[in-house]
Design a binder for these strands. Structure first.
Lengths: 108, 108
DNA sequence: TATCTTTATCGTAATATTGCAATATCACTT
DNA sequence: AAGTGATATTGCAATATTACGATAAAGATA
């Protein structure tokens, strides 16, 4: 194992933030999150057209977002309805804000 | 070009957030930022021992952080003094908070 | 049941990231 | 000028990510 991230040498907090940040580290996932949150009825069928990536790629990105529990998905008829998981979303915000708070710039 | 991120199809705002998030998307960089911010005199010579990665790897991570202007570096004798760039740091915070604010979970 | 629509998965190619040994560079000291 | 200690760069191997065509699966509808 050479090119793999050495997660084991870092604290849980540092890894948690890194994993969360990684989800936001691709413009497609940022765009997807923003689009889903803006939809009234959150039918995500048109995500492929809106974003401009192929259906498998969109599905893959959705999976990345789902991995950290940020999406709730339910079937409404033949269409899948993806929504932001509010609790997880708050949690994510907390993780970032916590990190920002802890950084104090008291030197130089 | 097949496996490369298609940055050109996304908005500037989405790309900016993604680039910023990418810097935080590795536990080493999170740990480095936190460590530097905690130091009184910010001599970062001991970063290699503290983090537990090789000197070239640390240097590389520092470079990633520098790329988005998050570090100010000045030489103090033979030692390099890295500090958080306060203005950029505030800017970064703003970018994330803006994104969090814009997400409204008004469905499902 | 057959067909249509939508999402998921598989397989694979291209590119990016991570990590380190070796080496270079740079500033200070003697 | 030579030596020392600290950071940067180069080169390369291992792994991860991104993207998409092809195909599968799942539910609705005729």
């Amino acid at each position: 194992m050479m090119g793999a991230t050495k997660t084991h040498i870092f604290t849980k907090a540092h890894n948690t933030l890194a994993v969360a940040a990684k989800v936001l580290a691709h413009p497609a996932r940022v765009a997807i999150l923003q689009y889903i949150s803006k939809q009234e009825n959150c039918i995500c069928n048109d995500l492929v057209d809106v974003i401009g990536l192929s259906q498998p790629t969109i599905s893959q990105h959705l999976n990345e977002i789902k991995k950290i529990g940020l999406l709730k998905g339910t079937f409404h008829g033949k269409n899948l309805c993806y929504c932001i998981n509010t609790e997880k979303w708050e949690e994510l915000q907390e993780i970032f804000q916590d990190f920002f708070r802890k950084i104090n710039q008291n030197c130089c």
